[in-house]
Amino acid sequence: MANLKELTHREDRLAGGHRLCAGCGASIAVRQVLLGAGEDPVVVGCATGCLEVSTTIYPYSSWKTPFIHNAFENSSATISGVEAAFKGLKRAGKIPADKTMKFVAFGGDGGTYDIGLQALSGAMERGHDMVYVCYDNGAYMNTGIQRSSATPKGAWATTAEVGAAQQGKIQRRKDLTQIMAAHGIPYVAQASISHWKDLTTKAEKAFAVEGPAFLNVFAPCPRGWRIPSSQSVEIAKLAVQTGFWPLYEVEDGEFRHTVKVHNRKPIEEFLRPQGRFRHLFSPGNEELLAEIQGDVDRAWDRLMARCSQV
């Protein structure tokens, strides 16, 4: 695990000049993941989404790596195919047997939790030597902030309106990290752009394991969350400190809480600075707020019970 000074010696594999919004969490996630990947060459694939669209506007690419985009739902299938082809060409003697290469697919929560879930599950089950990274910003930001299955309960989205009938999204979010852990793959982790050391270490581990690895990275979206562009990292930190986004890893089935939170802050501290939750603080929504806190507490207790005490 490298410190920041050591990391500066590695190549930044995402160039500037991409057209993601100012303060975007996705590009922070990508930089940290690829810095953690180390020195080996990396092949990147992307699901359709903000990241893919904004980093590959023709005739420009922000990737200092080979890059492939196919469709919204199949980045895992595409990258797993590239990995299988690499192995096949090695076997056929067309690529030197000692050549090493890493394979990674990036997708947003729309392309991962919803649209790409089946392809992701398949690629993980087949045991390809690849890393899948979800940058979770909790909605379909690229197409205009539509709710996804990662959108938190109570959040406003353009398809989860706030009005007489409902106060933002009614349903709880899906816990994808747990779903991936249930695949029994060698490495699964949940990380946040606010905790670079934890994130780059997890990325390093994910790339190092033989076989499939999954990273779920919390990546705020200033545009969709209605926060100032300077607050992305701060909000991500609050998500960790309130227990909304616990940082943990699952290595060969063993759960480990990697960044301890001793005094969990009330969930209001994460919700209040974000415009998408503003209505929750209007009179009449006290019960909903308490319900959200209850959901966080229950998920936290369940997770802590699974984490081995170190």
Binding site: G16, G17, L20, G23, L35, W196, S229, S232
Partner: peptide
Amino acid sequence: IVCPDTSINVAGEKVTTFDLDHCKGCG
């Protein structure tokens, strides 16, 4: 490590300048 636009120039393990061609001023 948190710049979304790879716009903090570093040399010899030290921050030197900002890459103002790419910095979007997110703060």
